[in-house]
């Protein structure tokens, strides 16, 4: 590479040879390759600690939901759905508010995954606890119904849990080849003290605290945010995604017919949707139920709540959670949902 043209018009010259440059780059490339080789070998010989899916909120949540499928829990009511179900319903409070105080287990997950997985979170629990569960409450946000699925990673993570693999499937072939998931789940998560990201981090701190919080609250979580957006949205263009309809049928199949299935749509902030949203919500609910075939539609639940009760367009905050749980308890009692 050495060239030193003496011409004045010369742009630049390299005062080193290719072997000299290789002498700089090879230690880096070699070090990188050795590191990957070492990680792959340690994983292959099972010399690394077990996977610790603690880095993300989602992994902790899915891991907890999977653990609960066979856990010794006396739940008679199971709550399922997207993150609105995990966040908006406080399971112990709902239990206290209902006659005879039946135990409630929150198995709510999040948006972006196959809704059939919500069905598994209830159906498998029912299968492992025969004759125990009387009611399944499905709560989703209206936002979920028009959406297409987004996160194959989380779906494969969930399915992997059934196969005893809690590392999650690699996000990409390159990620597998570079041993990124091995490094992240089996190594980094044991030594890196990263807090949960976002607002939740300031409530739960480390993901391990979230893991502690979930069993103490029968699976319910809290969003500590505060909705302060202004300007309403016109959501009249929302239509149910046909994929969702197919998923709904699978969800229904996972719940035995002798268990009552109630379905509701989570409220949205008054600052985000207008009063006309109620009619739209009811229409969406009825249309979706053509596939879902729920036994009870929770149409008396509020379609909107004041901004002060909301953490975001799809989540309630702690204050909203308590209010909504009370309204849900009243509605379930009014409909005699447990006595069916």
């Amino acid at each position: 590479m050495t060239n030193d043209p003496s011409s004045k018009a010369c742009g630049h010259g390299f005062d080193f040879s290719v072997p000299q440059l290789a002498g700089v780059l090879i230690p880096i490339v070699l070090g990188f390759a050795l590191l990957i080789g070492l990680l792959q070998a340690l994983a292959a010989f099972k010399w690394l600690p077990t996977a610790r899916p603690v880095q993300g909120f989602d992994e902790v949540l899915l891991s907890h939901r999977h653990t609960m499928l066979r856990a010794d829990h006396p739940a008679e009511i199971i709550v399922i759905g997207d993150s609105s179900s995990a966040v908006n319903i406080e399971a112990p409070l709902l239990s206290r508010l209902l006659p005879a105080e039946p135990r409630v287990l929150n198995q709510g997950m999040f948006m972006g995954i196959d809704m059939a997985i919500y069905g598994q979170a209830a159906g498998n629990f029912i299968k492992h606890h025969p004759g125990q569960v009387k009611l399944v409450v499905l709560l989703t946000t209206a936002e979920q119904l028009p959406n297409t699925r987004m996160s194959p990673y989380h779906e494969s993570y969930w399915h992997g849990l059934f196969e005893g693999d809690d590392t999650g499937k690699p996000r990409s072939p390159a990620s597998a080849w570079l041993a990124m998931d091995v490094a992240r789940l089996r190594l980094a998560n044991h030594v890196v003290p990263f807090a949960v990201h976002g607002q939740s981090g300031w409530f739960y701190g480390h993901p391990l605290f979230l893991r502690d919080h979930l069993p103490r609250h029968d699976g319910s979580t809290v969003d500590r945010g505060w909705f302060n957006r202004s300007g309403r949205e016109d959501l009249s263009h929302w239509r149910i995604n046909p994929d969702r309809a197919r998923e709904a049928a699978k969800l229904r199949d996972a719940i035995p017919r002798d268990v009552t299935l109630a379905f509701g749509i989570a409220p949205m902030p008054e600052g985000y949707v207008g009063p006309e949203f109620r009619d739209q919500r009811d229409a969406l609910m009825r249309e979706f139920n053509e596939w879902l075939q729920a036994d009870i539609l929770l149409t008396n639940l509020p379609a909107r709540l004041p901004n002060g009760y909301c953490a975001s367009t799809v989540h309630l905050n702690q204050r909203g959670q308590e209010a909504f749980t009370r309204l849900l308890a009243e509605e379930l009692e009014r409909l005699g949902a447990l006595g069916r």
């Binding site: 230690p27 880096i28 490339v29 070699l30 070090g31 590191l35 490094a183």
Partner: peptide, 18 residues
């Protein structure tokens, strides 16, 4: 030394990718 710097840079690159 060049080998030590190379190893350090390799680790940094790996963590960056992580």
């Amino acid at each position: 030394p060049r080998w030590a710097r190379g190893a350090l840079q390799a680790v940094l690159i790996y963590v960056i990718l992580l």
